[in-house]
Amino acid sequence: MIGNGLQGTLLGLRATIENYDTTVIGLIMSCYFGGYLLGSLTTPKLLARVGHIRVFAALAAMAAICILLHGLFVHPLAWAIIRIFSGLSFAGLYVVVESWLNDLAQAGNRGRILSIYMMLSHGGLAAGQLLLPVADPAQMELFVIIAILISLALLPIALIPRSAPNFAAPARLGLRELFHASPLGVVATACAGVLGAVALGIGPVYAAQTGLQSHQIGLFIASIILGGMISQLPMGWLSDRFDHRKMILVTSCIGALMAALCALGSPAQFPGILAVILYGGMAMPLYGLAITHTNDHLHPSQFVSASASMLIYNGIGACLGPTVAAALMDMFGPHAFFAFIAVTFAALAGFVLHRMRVRPPVPLDEQQKLVPMPRQATILTGLLFPRRKPGARDE
């Protein structure tokens, strides 16, 4: 996660240094999320045929090779193609990890395992930003550092003394069936994909275009991720006490306000940096809120298959978001970055209000508990959801 966090920011900054058009950068970043979605859907089949350790070793090697190729072949088309394979390889690595964690999880510790995994995921992404000032982003050193970090992940997997678990990929709930069950959950999931991909994919480009230095760019992206980490606990506490739709509504309104403040001011200075942290605190937990709200309208036996299908909607949003945001920045300047984020939040808030008029709320005692989601979930993340206790409501 440290290597991947540094990789995304480095590529956005290096592309700006190379004077790529902002729209082109957006397309390059979207390719990663397209590859990520493809890797998350196909790796489970590969696991069943080849096994966890071999798949992890092959994909870690591919991820390390991809980042080195970015440094060797600095060209937009080459980067777009490489980013697809980079996204595919990272998705596969996370699938292996989540499958292994699921095999270790028991009824009483699933929630704790998922929370620790989420914190490590966010923490690794944030820590990667702090390595950006270590070397000149226009040179090869940072690409080599990322490749080393990714390669280090091979050591515990290759030397682990226990055998890999048995594996069966979960089925996916039909996309149309899922939308009919929870239109708001699907739309919120897609918006979460847009917001997350724009923040981490185009955020470094925006920061560079507004004149921030390397260490400031790293702190800017780290602040967004930090906000998401801090907000998880209060979000979980509030979600047990309020209608999940109201949670999504308030989150969207605050996120839109913070993004608007950032668009009008300087996010690198106080109080702008506080607005950035609060924006991250609203954007990062949105995926978990969307899945939890969707689960409110499903049978517990459908939770895992639904989360696998939600990944597709999230991936579609993640693929579209960077391209649209980058095109708007080309037309209206860098501050269109936060303006686009504010509009996305506001549109989601409007859809929440619409759904609140046409559908009654789920009683609080029948709502699901908020599921903490790692920033880059896979088709297997749902396997880590806490299981319902005996005697709990089944419908």
Rank of each mutant, 00 (worst) to 15 (best):
S307W: 06
W79Y: 06
L47F: 03
R241P: 11
A158V: 09
A181P: 07
Y287Q: 14
F33E: 09
V194L: 15
R172H: 06
V371G: 02
H335G: 02
R359M: 09
F270W: 13
F303Y: 14
P170D: 04
L226D: 07
I160H: 13
G123T: 14
H52M: 04
S305H: 13
A153D: 01
I341R: 01
P386E: 12
L173D: 01
H70F: 15
V95S: 05
L233Q: 07
I116G: 01
S89E: 02
T16I: 00
I146A: 02
L249N: 10
A135P: 02
S231N: 01
A91Q: 06
P161E: 10
V343Y: 05
I146K: 00
S252R: 03
A135D: 11
I67H: 12
A190K: 05
I53E: 12
L154N: 02
V198D: 01
N102C: 10
R83H: 13
L383M: 15
A58C: 08
G26L: 11
H293T: 02
G333I: 05
A327H: 02
I116L: 15
N19R: 14
G92S: 07
L274Q: 09
I291R: 03
L298V: 12
R245E: 04
H354I: 06
A222T: 00
R14Y: 01
T23N: 11
V358P: 05
Q269L: 07
C262P: 02
A346K: 04
L328M: 09
L173S: 04
A377K: 12
A171R: 13
M373N: 06
P76W: 11
A61K: 10
A64N: 04
F167W: 07
T381W: 01
G382K: 12
I379D: 10
N166V: 07
K369S: 15
G128H: 04
M235F: 15
A347D: 08
G196Q: 01
F337K: 01
S214V: 09
F351P: 12
I150V: 15
P285Y: 06
I67C: 10
R388K: 15
A326T: 07
H354M: 12
S252I: 10
G12F: 03
A147K: 04
F303S: 12
L88N: 03
A153I: 00
G350D: 12
A60I: 11
G196W: 09
S223W: 04
A325F: 06
G228E: 00
G123I: 11
P322T: 00
G193M: 02
S301V: 14
V343L: 08
L13T: 13
N102Q: 04
S252V: 10
E177K: 08
A126T: 06
Q302T: 09
A153F: 08
N295W: 02
F338Y: 11
G350T: 08
A377P: 14
Y279H: 06
D394I: 14
P372I: 09
G350L: 13
A268F: 01
V276Y: 03
F340G: 13
G174T: 10
T189V: 06
G185M: 10
L132W: 00
T251K: 09
M310Y: 03
M62R: 00
P170Q: 04
I150K: 07
V205Q: 07
